[in-house]
Design a protein around this nucleic acid. Structure first.
Length: 393
RNA sequence: GGGCAGUUACCCAAGUGGCCAAAGGGGACUGACUGUAAAUCAGUUGGCAGACGCCUUCGGAGGUUCGAAUCCUUCACUGCCCA
């Protein structure tokens, strides 16, 4: 149960015990466990944070269990309020379809394509009647929702909490019933949805409640808060190897533990050993992080690409050399430095370009350019800041 | 349905007629230092010109005024209290 995080020892014990019982039971019945995790198709590109529950699903697959990847096509009409202190914008059906389409392909970077069932929760949620909803809803009190941290904060801040946001938990609980699952995987932000809502609804509907596997939340590249695209601290699964490697390296040291436990394929023993070496000083934190970065890139792009990305990283950032590949721009006659910066897309506006030049952030072949209005000196590698490069020809 | 308060830049938030492109904080970006880390320090953070200046922006629309984020009308949305 590496990477699990219940925030409550008793709950953890209960879940571990139930899981054991369920395993024995399933074995007796000669069937694998039915395991599922729901994903919100809010965005079309998944990031490392999404990979955490997928990794757990993959482990179940490898142990021979049956894994269902649920696309929250219906739930995303609401948007899960769990990790949010604000109302989420509702998606249109078209957006959901489009996002879901690209979703599965990315998921297969982790999951075993042959062994994964994909389901859309609109299959069973769209047909629920108002009467059924009333029955389900009667299992919950308003207080249970309001005392949840995310709702409580909004309540205290005087921010709006919409009625339909409370449906989310109920809908997710119904997913578990519809799929007759044994195990549900999710992050700590899903604690209420899984442990309270889903189990309650399953019990109410006469099922044996599913077991919650609650995983830690992966912090973003800032090392502080949950990885999310909207916060801009995410590492997309579709990043290039170089980009992914660099982004992992930019994660603060204090988050290394979380990355090792939640993203890598490493065993607990291996992680413990590396952490011990870090503590004793036998391994430099940078080298440890490079190992993590290489491992993570390997998962998504393979060993070879990961090694290449590492070489590129060393070259550009440790030796302050230039990357091998960069965008190109064809110099036009009569262009000033500023013109080229803008036309090559290195800056968003002329004002920004001037600012960059004033701040000595613009270099041509390593020489700082001081004059925005001067004619562009000569073809070469134009650099803005540390990581924006264009080869001007 | 009634009363009151509110809606400001990426986010939070100050500003109640000119000195407001709009304080402060966060974030982001640049530079120094580094391990492209963190922390720290210095700076930048609407656009066009870059010297003066001009233009767009303070929920939407309209109005008062030489002049509006600030006053008035109206519409939309939110919170609180009452029903």
């Amino acid at each position: 149960m590496q990477g699990t995080e219940y925030g409550d020892e008793e709950l953890k014990q209960t879940m571990a015990r139930e899981l054991k019982e369920r395993l024995l039971e399933a074995e007796k019945e000669g069937r694998p466990l039915r395991v599922y995790c729901g994903f919100d198709p809010r965005t079309s590109d998944l990031h490392l944070g999404h990979s955490v529950p997928m990794r757990k699903l993959r482990q179940f697959q490898e142990l021979g269990h049956e894994v269902t990847f649920v696309v929250g096509s219906f739930t995303s009409l609401i948007g899960d309020p769990s990790d949010k202190d604000k109302l989420r914008p509702r998606l249109t059906a078209d957006e959901v379809r489009h996002n879901a389409a690209t979703y599965a392909e990315q998921a297969y970077k982790i999951l075993d394509r042959e062994k994964t069932r994909i389901r859309f929760n609109s299959e069973w949620l769209a047909g629920l009647s108002f009467e059924e909803l009333i029955n389900l809803a009667s299992n919950f009190t308003l207080q249970q929702f309001i005392t949840r941290d995310n709702f409580r904060k909004r309540w205290e801040n005087g921010d709006p909490i919409y009625l339909h946001e409370t449906f989310y938990s109920i809908m997710q609980g119904y997913d578990a019933h519809a799929l007759q699952t044994d195990v549900q995987v999710g992050g700590t932000d899903q604690l209420f949805n899984i442990v309270t809502a889903a189990r309650k609804i399953m019990t109410f509907l006469g099922d044996k409640p599913n077991i919650a596997i609650i995983l830690g939340i992966l912090p973003g590249t800032d090392g502080e808060v949950k990885m999310s695209k909207s916060l801009g601290n995410h590492i997309p699964l579709l990043s290039t190897p170089e980009d992914m490697y660099g982004k992992v390296m930019s994660v603060p040291d204090k988050a290394m533990g979380a990355y090792m436990r939640l993203v890598t394929r490493w065993t607990p023993d291996r992680i413990a050993a590396l952490e011990a070496d870090l503590r004793s000083g036998a391994v430099h934190p940078r080298d440890a992080k490079m190992e993590i970065a290489r491992e993570i890139v390997s998962i998504f792009h393979g060993e070879e690409s990961a090694l290449a990305a590492e070489e590129a990283f060393k070259k550009v950032f440790q030796q302050r050399d230039l990357p091998d590949v960069m965008a190109e721009y064809g110099l036009q006659p009569g262009q000033t430095v500023l013109d080229v910066l803008l036309a090559a897309g290195l800056v968003a506006s002329k004002s920004e370009g001037r600012r960059m030049i004033e701040q000595k952030g613009v270099r041509l072949d390593g020489t700082v350019l001081e004059r925005a209005d001067a004619a562009f000196p000569h073809p070469g590698v134009l650099q803005v800041g540390k990581r924006r490069f264009v080869r001007v020809k």
